[in-house]
Nucleic acid binder design. Structure first.
Lengths: 338, 338
DNA sequence: CTGGATTGATAAACCGGTATAGCTCCCGAA
DNA sequence: TTCGGGAGCTATACCGGTTTATCAATCCAG
C-alpha cells in the first residue's frame, strides 16, 4: 500500500481515526495498551504524517523561513552564512522542522517575501539577519504577527526576540590588544553604516580611543566589498602619518587590505598589523595568516533556531539570549609597531 | 477580515466555491465575465492561496528541495553554491515555487532526507549536486519516484534529468592554452576521485597529454580542502623535475597552492603558472590574480530549476540540457615558462 | 420543432489530518 | 441502589482548497 494514512491504521487497529490521532500525538484519550498497539502498527506500516494535512487542520506548518538580502556575489565567500545555516538546521532538525531559504536583492523584496509567506501560510516564523538601524522589517513582522528572531542585534524596544553577541566588548578586546602591543595609530575599516553591528563597533573604537591614548582612530565605512576595502586601505597607507594597525570588519576586506599592503611594499606585520573581525578559512589561507576574531557561528545559528521555536510556541514572551563572547585568535599579521 | 478564503470570495461574488476555483486557476467552467468579476474581487480582498490546503487536494506542494552533503566548513568559501542557489531561486520564483535547503554531513543522511520528504509530501522534486560515480542517490530517487534533476553530470542510463557543462572540453582548453605557452610539465591537482566531474577532468588531461607533447601530466586527487591542496603542491614543487604549471580543480586549492609557492620562493608566474578550474572573488583577491575558468553558475542554477519544473510537469520525458561551455579568464598567474 | 451537444454553473465529495461533542462503561460514594 | 463522574473511545465537523457528478439553459443541426 502506498503512503498509509491514519485511516488505514485505524481500520487495521480496529479503532477510530480520532483514537489513532490521539495515540500518535501522545495526548490523553486512549489507554496505554491501545496506544502501544496503534504505535506499533503505525511503525509497521511506516506511517509518516502528511505535512500539508497537518498544516491545514492545526495552523502550524512545521517550517521556518530565512531570507538573506544581499547580492549573491558577496554571499559566497562569506563562510558566515554557511555556518549559520548549518547551525540553524541542527537546531531545527531536533523537532524535524524544515527551513526555507531565500536569497533576494534588497529589503523591499525581503518584506514582500514575508507578506507572501504569511498569506500563504508557508512558515511558522522567520529568522532575521543584518539588522539595520531603523529596520523596517521589525515593524512589518510585528504587523504581520509573524514570530521572528533577530540574529546579531537586540530586537530593540522589546519588539522581537533575539540572539546576540557583544560586538562592543569584542571590538574593545581587539583595540586593547593592539594598544598593548604599542600601536597608537589604529584605523578601523568598517562595514555598511546602517547596520546596527557596524554602529556598535564604531562606537566602541571611538569610546576606547582616549582611554588607551590613541593618537588617531578613524572608522571608515564601506559596503563590505573587497574593492572598497582595498580602496580605503590604499588611501590610509598613502597618508604621511599612516596607521600602524588596521582593523577590518570582515575577513574579505582584511584579505583585500593585505593585498594592497603587499602591492605598496608595506610589510605585514612589520610596518602594519592587520586584524579581521571575523574568522574563516580565508584568513588562514593568507601569508601571513591573519589575526582574527573567532565567533562560534554554528552555535549562533543553533541558538537562534531554539529561540525561534520558543517564540513560536509562546509568542507573548520575548527572549533576548546573549551568546558567549567571541575570542581573538592571534596569528601572524599582528606585531608591535617598528 | 483576516485571510480571506475562496468561500469568502464566493459569497461576495454570489457564486459557488467551485466557480471561484475555476476562475482563479484559469481553467474552463466559467464565463469570461464571471471570471473577471471573481478575479477583481480576489484582488480587492488580496486573496492568496493557502499552500497547505492546495497541497492537500491536488498533490503538488509547490516546493522543491535541495540537499547539500558536505561539511559546512568547506561550504562557506565556495561561492559556487551561493551563485547556484540564487540561480535556482530565480528559476523557481517565476512560478512562485519555494525552495527547501538542507545541509547534511553525508550521503546516507541525504538519502534519509529524501525518504522523509517523500513520505511527508514536503517537496515536488529535488535538485542533486556532486554526482559520484556509482551514485546511490539515483536509484533511491527512482524507487521513491521523486522527480529530480542532476546538476553537473549526465544522469546516466537515461535515469534522471540533468543540466551539465562539458568539463572535458573546458579542461582541454586549459591544457591546450598552457601547452601553447610552452609548458611541457603540467600537473593537475584534482578533487575527490569518486565525483564524476573529477573523473572526466582527469581523463581529459590524460588524453590530451601525448597529443600536446607533454612530458608529464599527473593528476593527483584530493578531498577539495585547502590543506590537501597545499600539501600536494608542496610535494610537487619539491621534485627535481617540478612542473612549470599546475591546474587546480577548485579556486580554494589554487589559492592554497599559490601560498605554498610563495612560501617556497617559487615565483608566480615566473617559475610556475597557476590555473583554477573555477572562478570567484577569491582568485581576484590574490596577488598575482589567478587565471581561472569562469562558469555562469547562476545560469546553471536557473536552468536546473527550469528542467526540474519540466520534469515535475511531465515525469516521463527525461531532459538532458547542455549549458554553454565555460571560458578561460586569463589573469596574472600564467606566463610562458622561464 | 425537436433531440443532442455544449456552455456555465452548482452542490457535494474528497484530500489527511485535528478537535470536539457525545456515548458507553465502570467505579466509588452517598 | 442510585447517581455522578471520569476514562476510553467513536462519530463527525472542520481546515481551504480541487475535482467531479449533475443540472439548467442555450445553441445548432436535421
Amino acid at each position: 500500500m502506498a503512503r498509509p494514512t491514519i485511516a488505514d491504521i485505524a481500520t487495521r487497529a480496529g479503532v477510530s481515526k480520532g483514537a489513532v490521532s490521539f495515540a500518535l500525538n501522545g495526548r490523553p484519550g486512549v489507554s496505554d495498551a491501545t496506544r502501544e498497539r496503534i504505535l506499533k502498527i503505525a511503525e509497521q506500516m511506516s506511517w509518516r504524517p502528511h505535512s500539508a494535512a497537518r498544516a491545514l487542520g492545526a495552523s502550524r506548518v512545521d517550517s521556518v523561513g530565512m531570507v538573506i538580502a544581499r547580492p549573491a556575489r558577496t554571499l559566497g565567500v562569506e563562510p558566515f552564512f554557511a555556518h549559520l545555516l548549518s547551525g540553524v538546521q541542527s537546531g531545527l532538525s531536533a523537532e524535524s522542522i524544515s527551513l526555507q531559504l531565500l536569497i533576494v536583492e534588497d529589503t523591499a523584496a525581503e518584506i514582500e517575501v514575508y507578506r507572501r509567506w504569511t498569506s500563504e501560510h508557508r512558515v511558522d516564523g522567520v529568522i532575521l539577519v543584518d539588522l539595520t538601524v531603523k529596520d523596517p522589517r521589525v515593524d512589518e513582522l510585528r504587523s504581520l504577527e509573524l514570530p521572528a528572531v533577530v540574529i546579531g542585534g537586540r530586537g530593540g524596544k522589546g519588539a522581537l526576540a533575539s540572539v546576540w553577541a557583544d560586538d562592543r566588548d569584542a571590538m574593545l578586546s581587539i583595540v586593547e590588544y593592539l594598544a598593548a602591543l604599542g600601536h597608537r595609530r589604529i584605523a578601523h575599516v568598517a562595514g555598511t553604516p546602517n547596520f546596527q553591528h557596524t554602529q556598535r563597533r564604531i562606537r566602541a573604537v571611538r569610546d576606547a580611543a582616549p582611554r588607551l591614548g590613541l593618537l588617531d582612530a578613524p572608522s571608515l565605512t564601506t559596503d563590505f566589498s573587497d574593492s572598497e576595502g582595498a580602496a580605503i586601505t590604499r588611501k590610509l597607507l598613502s597618508q604621511s602619518d599612516r596607521p600602524t594597525a588596521i582593523v577590518y570588519d570582515s575577513d574579505v576586506m582584511a584579505v583585500a587590505g593585505l593585498g594592497v599592503a603587499m602591492e605598496m611594499g608595506v610589510s605585514v606585520p612589520g610596518d602594519l598589523s592587520i586584524v579581521a573581525f571575523d574568522d574563516s578559512i580565508l584568513t588562514q589561507l593568507m601569508h601571513p595568516a591573519l589575526t582574527a576574531l573567532s565567533r562560534d557561528t554554528f552555535d549562533f545559528g543553533r541558538q537562534a533556531a531554539e529561540v525561534l521555536l520558543e517564540t513560536i510556541a509562546d509568542p507573548t514572551t520575548v527572549v533576548n539570549r546573549r551568546t558567549p563572547d567571541p575570542v581573538l585568535t592571534v596569528r601572524e599579521s599582528t606585531a608591535p609597531p617598528s
